[in-house]
């Protein structure tokens, strides 16, 4: 047991927690939170792996990738929130349930 595997393992636990909540939670804001937790888990695996290196010098490539990833997930969060607010305005709902007449199946 060392620092790297501790963090990498926790990253995977966070990923699983987020995935679980994204699938079963129905409130849109909770789904958004869950997706963010999932992303944080992935980033933790990246950074933990980048931290293995001789003399404690971290690998900058995973860090750069995570910086990119953080911005991308911010973009998705921002768009998802605006979509959720619009859906709430039009239907009064905070879930993805769709109107029967315009529904597909």
């Amino acid at each position: 047991m060392n620092t790297v595997s501790l963090y990498a393992g926790s990253g995977i636990i966070l990923f699983s927690l987020g995935l679980h909540a994204l699938l079963i939670r129905r409130h849109l804001l909770r789904k958004i939170l869950a997706a963010n937790i999932m992303g944080s888990g992935v980033f933790m695996v990246f950074i933990a792996m980048g931290a293995r290196g001789e003399s404690g010098v971290a690998d900058p490539v995973p860090q750069a990738m995570v910086l990119t990833g953080i911005v991308v997930s911010l973009c998705f969060t921002a768009v998802a929130i605006v979509l959720a607010v619009r859906i709430n305005k039009l239907t009064g709902c905070t879930t993805l349930a769709v109107d029967e007449e315009s529904s597909i199946d």
Binding site: F15, M38, V42, L83, I87, L96, D99, S102, S103
Partner: peptide, 23 residues
């Protein structure tokens, strides 16, 4: 509203897919 719901569902699907890919 149906289009917005479809878009948001697609967003979550896309996020889920790409995070699994990224891991």
């Amino acid at each position: 509203k149906a289009a917005l719901a479809a878009a948001l569902r697609y967003l979550f699907i896309g996020l889920l897919g790409s995070l699994a890919y990224l891991l």
